[in-house]
Amino acid sequence: MGDVVNVPQTYGLGPIKVRAITSGEVEMVAPLTGSGYSVSGCSGGGGVSSGGGGGVVFRCGEGPAATINDVMNLKVVKILATAAVLRIDPAK
């Protein structure tokens, strides 16, 4: 927990910080760098809320990738006791 993942500025997010890992979800927070924000996916349980101050909080479980801002895929590959494996790549 507390790890930070830097993503390209074109994704519309600043660094993504892992806030919590549970048995079923990874909770992440990121500042917005663009003018809007959208997410679809987060199968296995998930949601998005405003983090205040121009940021967002999102929770994703293991499963298919979530598409963020129509330009980035974020997939929770595996959730372990105190760590998670994330895969981030451009949306296709």
Rank of each mutant, 00 (worst) to 15 (best):
A83K: 10
S50C: 01
T82D: 15
G24K: 14
D89E: 15
L74V: 15
P8N: 02
G63D: 01
D3H: 05
S23K: 14
T22G: 14
K17S: 13
R19M: 06
M28V: 00
G63H: 01
M28W: 02
P8A: 09
V77L: 12
Y37T: 07
A84F: 04
S49N: 10
G51L: 05
G46R: 05
G45F: 04
L86C: 02
S43C: 06
D3N: 06
S40E: 12
V5S: 11
I88V: 13
I79F: 11
V76S: 11
A81S: 09
V26P: 13
I68A: 08
L74M: 15
G54Y: 01
T82K: 15
G61C: 00
G51C: 02
M72F: 05
V56M: 12
P8H: 04
A66T: 11
E25I: 00
S23Y: 11
V56E: 06
T33G: 11
P64M: 14
S35G: 10
G45M: 06
N73G: 02
I21A: 08
T67I: 15
D70I: 01
V71A: 12
P90L: 05
R19T: 07
Q9R: 13
E27H: 07
T10I: 10
A20N: 14
S49P: 00
E62F: 00
Y37C: 08
K78D: 10
G24N: 13
S49T: 12
P90K: 12
E27N: 10
Y11L: 06
E62I: 01
V56Y: 11
P64A: 14
S50M: 02
G53L: 04
V71L: 08
Y11T: 15
P90V: 09
A65W: 06
Q9L: 10
V5I: 15
M1E: 12
V29T: 14
V76R: 12
S35M: 03
R19D: 14
D3A: 13
S43A: 15
S50P: 03
A84R: 00
V39C: 11
S35E: 14
L80N: 06
L32C: 05
K17I: 01
G47S: 12
I16W: 13
S49W: 06
V71M: 07
L86V: 00
I16Y: 08
S43K: 13
D70C: 01
S35A: 10
L32V: 00
S23I: 00
G54A: 03
V18H: 12
T67M: 10
G14F: 02
M1Y: 03
P15W: 05
G12S: 04
K78Q: 13
A84L: 02
G36W: 10
C60L: 08
G12K: 03
G54M: 01
N6F: 00
F58N: 03
C60F: 05
R19A: 07
V85I: 15
A66I: 11
G55S: 15
V4W: 00
I16P: 08
A91W: 09
F58I: 00
G61K: 07
L13A: 06
M28N: 01
C60T: 00
R87P: 00
C42E: 09
D3R: 04
P64D: 14
P8K: 02
V18G: 07
V77M: 11
G55L: 04
V77K: 15
V71I: 09
G61Y: 04
C60Y: 09
P64W: 09
K92L: 09
V48W: 05
G14Q: 01
I79G: 02
G47T: 00
G51I: 02
G12V: 03
